[in-house]
């Protein structure tokens, strides 16, 4: 459903950037106006969405408990999967956010007839981890374009990422994450295409970000290894953006602007899409609350009194029957 449409939209965006910069010469629009606008939309939209979520209160404390609870008895509590304290919750959230623990739980490897059999869901966890971490590393690596002196942390990440020390076609050092992210994206896309049940639940808005990020990755790889864009000029542009004194150097080439434009689109699209799960996961009340319900009262800001049947009304209706049966009553 909608996969073709999503692909066409991304191709259209690429075409737009190509025409805009390669033919019409609107480098300053694609290099300055769009990125700034997208960045503002991203920041404002992101904050707006989080505030909007935050304004919906958490009326009840309803964690999903995934291990033995804390009780006054001697049984050993599972402090990560069923935390009863803030620290426990922090630990649970850490594993949730950094290791995708819930997704991993899915993934019981089983030994059948002496052979390790891995359910499809294990691959989902693996694909998700591969994608998110390589995305994160690539994102961090790119910070060198926005800082005058490359911080040691980023240089460190770069050297780890390129530890294979391979050069392709005489190009700069090869980054492992470039390969990993393409593989992961193709896997995530592939399961939506080839697994009928996923194809059924997928919306255009599931395919679109995949194609968009794939477009960004591919243009990035083309620039680095094949067409060798002039990195000094690119950095001149990006640094000027950082310092709010935008200058557009001549002759960077459309490929860069396509890359840059797709990133702008991703930023602008982010707050309006499911990509907001990045922020949502931190706010999810089934994960970020301690299971200490019977120890510590949770207050609901909008709780209101409800009408219920009081004992007096109950006794009024049944008093005769109660008396006859010898059950004590309040009013004789």
């Amino acid at each position: 459903m909608g996969i073709v449409r999503a692909l066409l939209v991304v191709l259209g965006l690429i075409f737009l950037a190509y025409v805009g910069t390669g033919i019409l010469g609107l480098e300053s629009i694609f290099g300055v106006v769009f990125p700034y606008t997208a960045f503002v939309i991203f920041v404002v939209g992101f904050i707006y969405k989080v505030i909007k979520w935050g304004r919906s209160p958490v009326p009840y404390r309803i964690p999903t408990t995934a291990g033995q609870h804390y009780s006054s008895l001697w049984f050993k509590q599972n402090k990560i999967d069923n935390p009863s304290t803030g620290w426990g919750v922090a630990l649970r959230m850490f594993f949730e956010v950094f290791t995708f623990r819930s997704l991993f739980r899915n993934t019981k490897a089983e030994f059948l007839k002496g052979r390790l059999y891995i359910g499809s869901s294990k691959w989902l966890w693996f694909g998700a981890i591969a994608f998110h971490y390589s995305f994160l590393i690539i994102f961090l690596r790119h910070m060198r374009f926005f800082t005058p002196e490359t911080p040691w942390l980023i240089s460190g990440i770069e050297s780890i990422d390129s530890f294979l020390q391979i050069h392709i076609l005489g190009s700069p050092l090869f980054y492992i994450t470039n390969l990993v992210i393409v593989g992961a994206l193709l896997y995530l896309l592939g399961r939506r295409v080839f697994d009928a049940k996923l194809r059924y639940i997928s919306l255009p808005s599931d395919y679109f970000p995949l194609f968009l990020i794939l477009g960004i990755v591919i243009t990035g790889i083309l620039m680095r290894y094949f067409f060798k864009v002039d990195v000094t000029k690119v950095k001149e542009l990006t640094l000027s953006l950082t310092f709010l004194k935008p200058t557009v150097p001549e002759g960077i080439g459309s490929l860069f602007y396509i890359h840059f434009f797709l990133i702008s689109v991703l930023f602008a699209y982010f707050p309006f899409s499911k990509l907001m799960h990045m922020a949502g996961v931190f706010l999810s009340p089934t994960r970020n609350l301690a299971n200490n319900n019977r120890m510590k009262r949770h207050v609901n800001p909008w709780e209101y009194p409800v009408k219920h049947r009081h004992y007096e009304e109950y006794e009024d209706e049944f008093r005769d029957k109660m008396k006859k049966a010898g059950i004590p009553v309040e009013k004789e």
């Binding site: 089983e110 059948l112 359910g119 499809s120 697994d195 009928a196 049940k197 059924y200």
Partner: peptide, 16 residues
């Protein structure tokens, strides 16, 4: 239904 077929074809997961 087509959407459940891939899943049902998984015949080794006795319990899940």
């Amino acid at each position: 239904p087509e959407q459940s077929r891939i899943f049902l074809r998984e015949r080794k997961r006795q319990f899940t």
